[in-house]
Structures are given as C-alpha cells and as structure tokens.
C-alpha cells in the first residue's frame, strides 16, 4: 500500500491533515474553556481556595499524591479526601486536616512518610478549602469509589 503513495501525496496528507487537526483541536479548546467555569464552580473560588492551591503547589503535595488522578502514585488520591476522611462535612474535615498535618511524620517504622510542613492553622484551612472545592468539580463520576 505504502508503495502506491508518492512523496507529494504524503506531504499533502501531512499538511492538510495536520492543519485540519489543529483547527479542530483549537476550536474544541475554546469550547472547553467556556464550559469549565460552570463544571468546576469557578464562582466558588474564594481567596482561601486560591491560597490553598498556592500552598498545594509551593509544598509540592503533587510530588507524592494524585489529585483528580494526576500526580505521583506514592500516596493516596486527594481529590476526594473530603468525602473519604471528612465525611463531606466541612467543619469536621477542617478539624481532621489540622490534626493530620500536625501529626506528620508518623512514627510507624518504614511505613511511607509524609513530611512536616509547619503550616499555620489558617494555612491548613486554606488547603482544606481548596480540597473541598476540588472534590466538587464535575469529573464525570471519577473516581470509581471512595478509596480514590
């Protein structure tokens, strides 16, 4: 089959096909950008949620954890930790988070360790707000169950 294709035909498939795909992809990206605010509750991004995201980044939590399935595979998924450890109760989750962050690293020998980040209560609350916001993103019913 390849024998029957000439070089100029191949070139045209490349240019035409590539350009076509690029246009489609650009168009779809625009549409996706339009739809994301609603699917992610963009209006619920409070200053505390934004601060929490920043803390998530500068402490590189994603270097051990996944969030909505992306990141590292060393430690539990945190996109739904609000449901798993907080039982979907905001006040309860914030208490849990303060206790958890303060207790690190734990002492069980040779269990995988999470470092101590020395964050203030307010900072931990921000991270909790960010994780609560994340857990409400419409991610097409992912993850399959509460364990993430």
């Amino acid at each position: 089959m390849i024998e029957r294709i000439t070089k100029s035909m191949a070139k045209n498939i490349y240019l035409g096909g590539g350009l076509f795909a690029l246009l489609i992809f650009t168009g779809l990206t625009f549409d996706t950008v339009q739809q994301i605010p609603k699917r992610s509750n963009d209006d619920k991004i409070t200053p505390s949620v934004a601060a929490g995201k920043n803390l998530w980044e500068v402490n590189n939590c994603v270097g051990c954890h996944t969030i909505l399935g992306e990141g590292a595979y060393y430690a539990p998924e945190l996109g739904n930790v609000f449901q798993r450890r907080g039982g979907s109760d905001e006040a309860g989750f914030k208490e849990y988070m303060k206790g958890w962050m303060a207790a690190q690293p734990m002492s069980e020998p040779n269990r995988r360790k999470m470092p101590q980040f020395n964050l203030s209560d307010k900072e931990v609350d921000s991270i909790s707000d960010f994780l609560i916001w994340t857990s409400k993103v419409n991610a097409n019913q992912w993850p399959p169950n509460i364990e993430g």
């Binding site: 996706t32 994301i36 699917r39 909505l68 419409n138 992912w142």
Partner: peptide, 9 residues
C-alpha cells in the same frame, strides 16, 4: 487526558 479532570463529556 480530559476524561476525569473537569472537562466536558
């Protein structure tokens, strides 16, 4: 990569 991160169906 856009299945389960908040992008449209």
């Amino acid at each position: 990569h856009f299945y389960f991160m908040g992008a449209p169906e």
